[in-house]
Amino acid sequence: MKFRRLITGAATAALVLGASLLGPAGAAAQPAAAAEVYVALGDSYSSGVGAGNYDSGSGNCKRSANAYPQQWAAANSPSAFHFTACSGARTTDVLANQLGPLNSSTTLVSISIGGNDAGFADAMQTCVLQSTASCVNRMGVANNYISNTLPAQLDSVYSEIRSRAPQARVVVLGYPRIYQLNGSCIVGISEQARGAINNTANHLSDITSKRAADHGFSYGDVRSAFTGHEICSSSPWLHSVTFPIGDSYHPTAAGQTGGYLPVFASHA
């Protein structure tokens, strides 16, 4: 009799244990997903220049609480978040100054880089201050750089990211087109110059997308997200020439929230 009770008790315990492992639907219990370890790299489009609310401790890097990496981290509570993106960064700056937090535990990386290498800010200055012909010529120089020099520089950065963070999902973010053509602007640079600027932005995005894909990284193309929100649109998410001057041609807080954040989140 006692032996039978022991068997019955053991069977009951086994059933209870089995139910707890299977869960309410009878499915095998899954281990809890590991918390994200997120590292945000890149240039001013990732640090959040133009979006305001900067971390005073970030100095000239101008890391904004409104930047898409900071917003994603606030919403998703990763177990660790390292924000090293910096205004003005080029590929060499990423390699020299931003990759320290990457390691085998890193699960998620974001990066936008390449615009400064191609001299896009200098080219924009040429377009604003000089003639249409000078603008078109300067954008041609940038396009040549993007085609022939930038790919190897991107490869160096992407290869180093993968070497340091072999398990991470890497999301490369591109750049928006700057102007809505035939839009609401009645002063400023010519429509031909605006078209040349957009063509260079498109070329930069296309080359970056190809290099990201060749490294097995996801590419977050923000051009569609910013369509209807370029400069000269009725609801721009990009600053035109403004003060402080460094904010010019960068996403506003709305551009980070409505443009970059959902594109990144869809790949993260």
Rank of each mutant, 00 (worst) to 15 (best):
A35L: 06
V37W: 01
A73H: 05
A29S: 14
S77E: 06
Y54S: 00
N76C: 05
D43N: 15
G48H: 04
A32S: 11
A73G: 09
G23A: 04
S58N: 09
A13P: 00
S47W: 01
A13W: 01
A40R: 12
R63F: 07
N53G: 08
G59W: 07
E36T: 08
V37T: 07
G57V: 02
A35V: 03
G57W: 07
A65Q: 15
Q71H: 10
A13V: 10
A73I: 02
S44V: 02
G59S: 09
S46T: 15
L17Q: 01
K62R: 08
N60Y: 13
S20V: 15
L41M: 10
G59Q: 09
N53L: 10
C61P: 07
R63K: 11
A35E: 03
A75I: 12
P69Q: 09
G23I: 02
A67T: 11
L41F: 09
N76T: 13
L21A: 08
A29I: 13
N76R: 12
G57C: 05
W72K: 04
A19Y: 01
P78M: 01
A32W: 01
G50E: 14
A40C: 12
V39H: 04
G59L: 04
D55C: 00
S44K: 06
A40T: 10
S77I: 04
W72N: 06
A13R: 00
G57K: 06
A28Y: 04
G57Q: 12
C61D: 06
A67D: 02
K62C: 03
A75S: 07
S77T: 13
A73P: 11
S44E: 04
P78H: 06
A19E: 07
L22P: 06
A35T: 08
N66L: 03
A33R: 06
N76F: 10
P31N: 03
Q71M: 12
G48K: 04
N76V: 04
A67I: 11
V39D: 07
W72H: 13
A75W: 15
A28T: 02
L15E: 03
A51T: 14
A25M: 08
E36C: 00
L22D: 04
G59R: 09
Q71K: 14
A67G: 15
G18N: 06
P24F: 07
D43R: 11
C61H: 05
A40K: 13
K62Y: 03
A14G: 01
G26T: 03
N66D: 03
G26H: 08
A29T: 11
P31H: 08
Y68A: 13
A27S: 12
G52L: 11
A25Y: 12
A73C: 06
N53A: 14
C61N: 05
A80V: 00
D55W: 01
A13M: 05
A40H: 15
G26Q: 07
S46D: 06
E36R: 14
G57M: 11
Y45W: 12
G48S: 11
L21D: 00
A19V: 11
A27Q: 12
N66E: 10
L41T: 10
N60I: 09
A74C: 03
A14L: 09
G42H: 15
